[in-house]
Amino acid sequence: MSPVGNENRVLSGLVEIGRGLATVMSHFGREPVTLEYPEVMPDLSTRFHGRLCLLTKSDSTDLCIGCKACARVCPCDDLIQIEMHRDENKKPVIDRFTIDIGRCIFCGNCTEVCPVDCIKMLSDFELADYSREALVLDKFDLNLPGEASDQWRVEHGLEKTVK
């Protein structure tokens, strides 16, 4: 390569690097786009696929009718386990309802098929725990109290009170 060509190359290279640097420098004055996470919580959408919960009626009694539709559509085997019986009035009583959050892939299939809009998702994503056993949530952990359930329903445009 001739020395003249080389000189041109060096010059244009310097100009281009200068242009790139100017673009980089122009970022100094801009607003930061990152969040200081534990202090500032991210603004999540209402459809966020977070921890599963069971909504309850307004008086905090079970809404679930034990139809097991959610367990059938779940892509993971035996992830949702339901045991139920019917009392003397043929009303369903849920004896056991466990979800293994450790194996859940948060796909939202279960929330779509529930006939009574009972199993739903919260925007809670901080689910880490110290043991695997603690990740198996039972009915006590999953049930959302009546007031919170009502609030959830209002936020997501469902009927407010379910009797």
Binding site: L44, S45, R47, F48, H49, I105, G108
Partner: peptide
């Protein structure tokens, strides 16, 4: 994408014959 489907990468949004919502 999070606003529309609820997840950032694993959308599970299209359904056979339509959309989830």
């Amino acid at each position: 994408f999070e606003d529309i489907s609820g997840a950032r990468m694993m959308y599970n949004y299209y359904r056979i014959g339509g959309l989830n919502a």
